Simulated assay, not measured.
Amino acid sequence: MKNLLFTIFTFSSILFYAQNQRFSYEYKFVTDSTAKDKSQTELMYLDISKKGSKFYSRDKAVADSIMDEMNKKGSNDFEGIKFGQVQSIVEKSYPDYKIYFFNRVDMDEYKVSDERKLDWKILSEKEKIGEFNTQKATTYFAGRKWIAWFTTDIPFQDGPYKFRGLPGLIVKIEDKANSHSFILKGVKNLKPDEIWISENDTKRYEPLIILSHDKYNKQVIDQRNNPTKGLRQLMARGGTVKFTDQDGKELDTSKMMREQEQRAKENNAKNNNLLELDILK
């Protein structure tokens, strides 16, 4: 990305600030396997502190902050806010590197424990990427073969998304099909009071639903097959669902539900190239 303002630090500087840093990655991805020329990008942050790391979208974090301030003022005009394309968040605890994945599916928010191991094959091939000397490694994860480049110059066995376990930070990683890739774009030393806050401690209207990875995947598939299930369950419990046009005129609920379900299924058909491809199999 052209406007990144972060600076790549030297090895000694990284060691000095080793416990509180932000690594910025450009995430490039293709959502529709039939349109591989139409890629999207999102700037992602990997914040590292003594307790572990948190991987999340910069745009989502900014949008959440703006919405919190507007809610405090009693405003509900969110027009113009850039919410970001990646809503999920990954947290890793140190030193055991346990993985917790946070995401919303339909009307519910989930905390998912992921105990899958990464079996890395470290190769002899080396490459200079930016300021870093890196070494190649490969693994199979979530239905894809991944090619990673890591550097021992940064002594964290961590990386973007759920990737971890190499003897140094992952500078670049992409799947064999070149449809999902993460590349390190910058490093920033954070202040002592900028330690990341866990999603466990975020205020929400409903508590997180805690699931295993397999049970969460079933929820994702169920939502794709029944995209208005949450609204229908709300109505079955006595809740009210109303649709209005731009003039405030109430529309036919049944018709709008059918149209919403059709649009969701059409969007799902185009969103067929998930990072974790094995969810759809």
Rank of each mutant, 00 (worst) to 15 (best):
T34S: 11
T151F: 08
K92C: 04
L231E: 06
S33F: 08
I154V: 13
A269G: 08
F23S: 03
Y97R: 12
G186R: 11
M256S: 10
G186Q: 12
Q157W: 10
R58W: 11
K218D: 15
L275A: 09
G130A: 05
L43D: 04
D278S: 10
R22F: 03
N200D: 06
V171K: 00
M257R: 07
Q85L: 15
T31H: 13
F101R: 02
P95S: 05
F9E: 11
S124W: 12
F16H: 15
Q19E: 14
H213M: 15
D278E: 13
W120M: 00
I48G: 01
P192K: 12
A269I: 09
K128P: 04
L251P: 00
V105L: 12
M67I: 12
E194N: 08
K92F: 03
S198V: 03
Y45V: 06
P207I: 01
I129M: 02
Y56K: 01
K126P: 01
I209A: 01
N217V: 14
F9N: 15
E261H: 07
T152I: 11
E69L: 13
P227E: 11
S93K: 06
T244Y: 07
R258C: 02
F163I: 00
K162T: 09
D114N: 13
A148D: 03
V90T: 00
E79S: 15
K218V: 13
R204I: 01
A177F: 08
A63F: 10
R258H: 05
Q157C: 11
T10M: 14
S12L: 14
K92G: 05
Q262K: 12
F78G: 09
Q19K: 14
S212I: 14
I209V: 04
M1R: 14
P160W: 03
M70C: 08
A177N: 09
G165F: 00
